[in-house]
Simulated scan of single mutants.
Amino acid sequence: MEHQSPAPTATSDTSTLIKDTNLQGFGEDVITASMQRPVIVDFWADWCGPCKQLMPALEAAVTEAAGAVTLVKVNADQNQALCGQLQVQSLPTVLAFWQGQPVDGFQGAVPPSQIKAFIDRLIEISGGAQQSNPIDAALEQIDALYDAGEYMQVVQGCQQVLGHEPGNIGTVIRLGDALLKMGETDQAKTILTQLDPNAINDKDLKARLERLNTALELSAQAESAGDIEELERAIEADSTNYQARYDLALAHQAKGNLEAGADALLAIIMRDREWNEDAARKHLLKLFEVEGADSPFTLKYRRRLSSILFS
């Protein structure tokens, strides 16, 4: 029997779905991995013409399945003992494992339609287990925690994901968002300002980053706001002191009281819509952007703004 060489390392983008293995790696790559989702094992050899016809079609079908199954390739010439254990007598032979056991298989180069039917059966057997990759599954859980207001757990979850995939832009954005919600503005700014919105292809992520950058901008403005009581006294002394009203809006915003801030901005718009190049309305629109189009705050104050502008 020939000496068994280590399995080559996959270098394509599908390396998490398609890999090579040998006798030493079979337990982890196939038996253990099949406890999570079906694993297809392709036994092949360099001299086998049908193997070279089957493999590209098999790889394409596994890629198209988007994580519902994985493919492990075994060079039969280099793993004769493994072939003997699994009673592989002709090439190509394809076996499918689920929950540690062989559940289906075929021999020879079959057409793509049969490969698809084969994979569909495996997905049905497994109930579609893990059709998304672990990172996607983790992000779904993180989003659920965010919606529940569990921002500290969101931060912890994002840090774990970034430990495995440091360049995951969606995770970085989620981390920055959660830090902003927790009031950790400096940390959020350090993380988010390193990202270039123009380099992000996902339009939803790009919009989310732009919204967060707007939130950072508003936060920076609020840092220079004055004392609320002093500003209120200045307004009481002069109702046309629109700068004081604007600063009051920022001061309320800095305290997290967006409604009081919006009220101060609307008071300016009611009295002088064009003051300081429409600064009050523009600032209010930024608050709408940060809070989201469907938030109760935005819906309430957008209605009030419309009633003032169109009265």
Rank of each mutant, 00 (worst) to 15 (best):
H3E: 14
S5E: 15
P6N: 10
A7G: 07
P8D: 01
T9F: 03
T11F: 11
D13E: 13
S15D: 08
T16M: 13
L17M: 08
K19W: 12
T21G: 15
G27P: 09
G27N: 09
D29C: 00
D29I: 03
Q36F: 03
R37Q: 05
R37M: 04
D42F: 12
W44A: 10
W44S: 01
D46Q: 15
C51F: 15
C51R: 12
Q53I: 04
A57Y: 09
E59F: 11
V62E: 12
A66K: 14
K73H: 07
N75F: 07
N79R: 03
A81R: 14
G84I: 08
L86A: 05
Q89V: 09
Q89P: 07
L91N: 09
P92T: 00
P92W: 08
P92G: 03
T93Y: 11
W98C: 00
Q99A: 13
G100H: 07
P102E: 09
P102Y: 03
P102L: 01
P102F: 04
F106N: 04
F106P: 09
F106M: 10
P111K: 00
P112W: 11
K116Y: 08
K116P: 07
A117C: 05
F118R: 06
I119Y: 07
I123Q: 05
E124Y: 08
S126N: 03
G128P: 10
Q130K: 11
S132T: 10
S132Q: 15
P134W: 06
D136T: 15
L139W: 01
A144R: 05
L145E: 11
D147P: 02
G149C: 09
Q153Y: 02
V155A: 08
Q156K: 13
Q156M: 07
C158F: 02
Q159A: 06
Q160A: 13
V161P: 02
L162T: 06
G163D: 05
T171V: 04
A178C: 02
E184R: 15
E184H: 14
Q187T: 02
I191A: 06
I191K: 10
Q194I: 00
Q194K: 12
L195W: 06
D196G: 10
A199F: 11
D202K: 04
D204M: 10
D204G: 06
R208V: 03
L209E: 07
E210G: 09
R211E: 09
L216A: 14
S219I: 02
E223K: 11
A225Q: 00
G226C: 02
D227K: 08
L231A: 06
E232I: 01
R233D: 15
A234V: 05
I235W: 07
D238L: 10
Q243N: 12
R245Y: 00
Y246K: 03
L248S: 01
H252A: 09
Q253R: 12
A254I: 02
K255I: 00
G256S: 05
L258A: 13
L265Q: 00
L266Q: 05
M270A: 15
R271C: 13
D272F: 00
R273Y: 14
H283S: 13
L284M: 01
L285K: 05
L287T: 02
G292T: 01
G292P: 04
S295W: 03
S295C: 00
I308R: 13
I308W: 06
I308D: 10
